[in-house]
Structures are given as C-alpha cells and as structure tokens.
Design a binder for these strands. Structure first.
Lengths: 261, 261
DNA sequence: GGTTGCCGGTTTGTCCGACAATCATACGAT
DNA sequence: ATCGTATGATTGTCGGACAAACCGGCAACC
C-alpha cells in the first residue's frame, strides 16, 4: 500500500503446506519413472512414517495426486497404484476450466474447425487397417443407434475420437477430447431440432471413411471441414445462439458401459 | 473369469467415498454458478457441519477441488474462495498426462505444426491494437534477453502465447499451452546447440508480427508454419532424436516474477 | 498522521488415537 | 477343486486437540 515503490524488494516467500510437499515428492517420483506404472504405493501409514508426517496429511496429498490421475485405486484393491492419467479424466478438467471461463459455442466450434480437418488429414496418412476398422465400426454404430438422441451424440463424438486415435498422435487426441466433451450437450439439442442432421452426419462420416480408406489426405481434410461446417449450419437452423456460454457439462460422467474384466 | 458369459448381467455398482461426494457437491455448485467467482467458501468446520461429515473428510474434498483449480486460497487469506482455473495450472495437468503417456518430441512438434499456423491466421483476423502491442513486446523481449538461454526459451514461448491470446479464443489458448510447456525444455537444448537458432527465431517472429499488423491472415499462417518447421530443422541439426520421449517437465514452476500487489 | 504493539476471536495445518468395513491370504472342510 | 472361515492389513471416517497465522480493532508512540 504505502510502501515506497522505490524501496528494497524482497521475493515473495512461498510457504508450502506439508500435504503439498508430500504430493510433490511422490509426484516427482512418478514423473521421473522411479515409480513405474502399475506399481503399488506403500500403505498410508508407511508413507506417513517415511515422510515423518501424519496419516491425514498423507491422505490429503493422495487426494491431490488422485485427481491429477497420477495414482488411482485399481478396482477391487485397497492400495493405490501408479497410473497413467486417463485422457477423459484429464480432458474433464480442461472442460471444467473452459466452462468456468465462459467459453462460447462459437469458440468451441471454431476450435473444432481448426483442429479436426488436419486431424483427419493426419489420420489418412497414419491410419492402420485396424484403426480403419474401429472408425468404420464407430460410423456404423452411429447409423444403427441414432434413434436415441443421447446415444447418437455419444457415437458422433466417438467417431471423432476414433479418427483422432488413428493419427497415432496422443497430443492431438488429448487436445480434441475437451472439445468433444463440450460439444456433446449442445449437439444433443441441435440434433433433436434439426430433422436432416442425422442423415447429413451419416453422409459426412461415410465420405470421411472413404477418404481414410483410400489414404486420401486431401479428401479427408476437406470432408471433415464440411462435416464441421455442417454443425454450424445445424446450430443456426436450430436457432442456438452461438454466443451462448457452453454449460451443462455433466460433472461426473456415469461410468461407460463396460465389459467386466 | 469363470462366470457364464451368457449369464445375467449386473451393472457395476459404484461406491463413492464421502470425500468425493463432498467434492462433487461443492464442484457442482461452482460449475452451475450458484457459487460465483471470488466468493468465499464457508470455513471447513461449517462445511463439515452442513454436510454432516468430519472436517478431515471436507479437507480431502477441498484438496481435490483445489488441484482442479476450482477453489484456491487468495494470497494472504485463510478462507478458500471460488476461482476460475488458471490456464497454466490446467495445462500442467495435461502436460503431466502426456509425459506419463510417453509422448515423443515428434508428436509435440507435429501437433504444433497443426495448431499454430491456424492460430496465427485467426490472430491476424481477430487481433486488436492492444493484442498487437503485447505481441510486439514479447518479440522485443526475446531479442533483448536471448543471451540467457532459460529466459530465451521462456520468451519464445511467451510469443506463441501472446499470439494465441490474440485469437480471442480461449479454447485455442488452452489447447496450445501444454504444447508450449513440453516444448520449452527441449527448445532449451536445441537453442544452445544451434548457433543460428536465435537469429532465425527473431526473423520469423518479425515476419509474423508484420503479417499480424497488416492483418494478412495468409502471410501469418505461412510464416508461422515456417517458424515451426524451423524448429524441426533445429532439432535435427542439434541431433536431438525426435522419437525421444518428452520429459524433464519442471514439476512445479517457480512462481513468476510478480509485482507485489 | 501514520506507524507500531498488543489483544481476542477465527480458521487452518497438523497431529493423535480410534473403529468399522473391506481386502488379502492362508487354512481347513466338503 | 470349490467353498467357508479365521486372521491380519489397510482404508474410510470419525472425534478431539493444539500451535500458528490471520483479522479487526484499539491503544501507544514518534
């Protein structure tokens, strides 16, 4: 306030609580691969003993690591084990951040415009036969299941995801994931209001699949671009204000239908 | 294992610990804007009373929200307050995830190839005079400070960030941030080994700035593309294996030099 | 007037100890 | 071999405790 702006300067002294120090210490071990994936952490009491802090403190640190996805509890196990953060979990954090920053549909859509066509292009180059099969399956599921709106949007997004995976570039896959998460709720509204939406999506997907199959990078890019542009048209027809804030993110998704291991 | 695959199916019963329920409950309030940005949370004892759980449980929930950036402690305050997640914090989570997934330099570089040119293009269209000034300042800082390698890479990244902000699309800004974080350590090595790297960066930045000033979207895009391609050349000259895993992410960045409030 | 010192009430950070429920494992019964 | 049971380990949650830090105000002081 009234301190002399020309006076002596001190660096801000940063005081970190113990739970954070513990979290950092364990986190560094994980990032540096001293603790390897799947390896099990010692029990909380043991950690508390080693760090010389109370178990409660260790627990707070574990919650922090847990929500960063660096450790998780394997189903049906008590001990925490080191894990690679799942993409959808990380992306959910990004989505929440974007929601809190009042991101609009227009921003999401425009980011998709930028991101998806090159992804399709890269996928056309890098896809394996297996990737293609997955993509085709996703497209077919959309055709088969688009009666139920909820499932329809899920599989429309799944189509994008499968294309993203086909690039074999994890950075791209992870970058697109929050966009898809934010797209879904609005897509649901749109697809319900616009009669021809489903069929347009089906054709676009078909064209993209054809291009990917032929390894036609240029074609994949342009058709993906069309596909995305179509979404915008759909929004306009459905009279969804593109300047509206994205919202309605389901805070915690119900676990996906999963074949028991 | 030995269960009949054709047998009766039950959905996985999900059992959530109390600390997670509390975190979700508070998180929903924040996401839905019932609790507004900057608003202060009740003290832990009060939260414990309201939720009917122990204070320790509340604390674990708070750690979870805290590491998601949804709440934070305002400097020099004890009570937690609702906050919009800072981009760099979120991006750090993404970076960690990518490191854990063994992302290679090639993947990072190739994602930059895809992302940055359209960002420059969008920036040329959307930039304000103010944005331009910030970008110019960033470029100038790189010229002035590139003797110190650490500062040089920081300001090279800062240049990208300022261009990203000029798009006025937060999604893009947040998408590029993890890439920049992962780029920095490797860039540091490269810039030290390649004599002409600094000057090439300077010229590329200058061209990009010129294009942005002239609102030349096409020029901004192509020069940004060149800029990124240059990085790859630099990597090759420095004999950095592009298939190498990205690593060496500084786990927790030292707080940026900050003018005391 | 502005700075400093002090005081009481609040709130967090950390600790300790405790207990029920669940999981892992081994062992014994069918 | 499958099942049931006993035993020990570990987590989730609880209650209570205390020092340190923060807040606001008020008195003292230069």
């Amino acid at each position: 306030m009234s301190s002399d702006p020309e006076g002596v300067r001190f660096e801000q002294i940063l005081i970190e609580p113990a739970y954070r120090k513990v979290a950092v210490a364990i986190g560094e071990r994980i990032l540096s691969r001293t603790l390897r994936e799947g390896e099990r952490l010692p029990p909380e009491t043991e950690l508390a003993r080693q760090f010389g802090v109370n178990r409660s403190t260790v627990r707070e640190a574990l919650r922090e690591l847990e929500s960063g996805g660096l450790v998780k509890r394997r189903p049906g196990s008590k001990l925490m084990s080191v894990s690679r953060p799942q993409h959808d979990v990380i992306a959910e954090g990004v989505s929440r951040a974007l929601v809190m920053h009042d991101v609009t549909f227009l921003e999401v859509w425009s980011a998709l415009t930028i991101l998806e066509p090159p992804i399709a292009e890269a996928a056309a180059r890098a896809r394996t036969a297996e990737d293609l099969a997955v993509i085709v399956a996703a497209a077919e599921r959309f055709v088969a299941l688009n009666a139920d709106t909820g499932l329809a949007v899920h599989h429309a997004a799944e189509f994008f995801r499968s294309v993203g995976r086909a690039t074999h570039n994890q950075v791209l896959g992870l970058a697109q994931e929050p966009l898809l998460q934010l797209l879904e709720p609005s897509l649901q509204v749109m697809i319900d209001k616009v009669a021809q939406a489903r069929s347009r999506i089906v054709t676009a997907q078909k064209r993209i699949v054809d291009a990917l199959e032929a390894r036609d990078a240029e074609g994949a890019r342009t058709w993906m671009a069309k596909h995305i542009r179509d979404f915008r048209k759909g929004y306009e027809i459905a009279e969804i204000d593109l300047e509206l804030r994205v919202t309605n993110l389901r805070a915690f998704r119900p676990p996906l239908p999963l074949v028991s291991a």
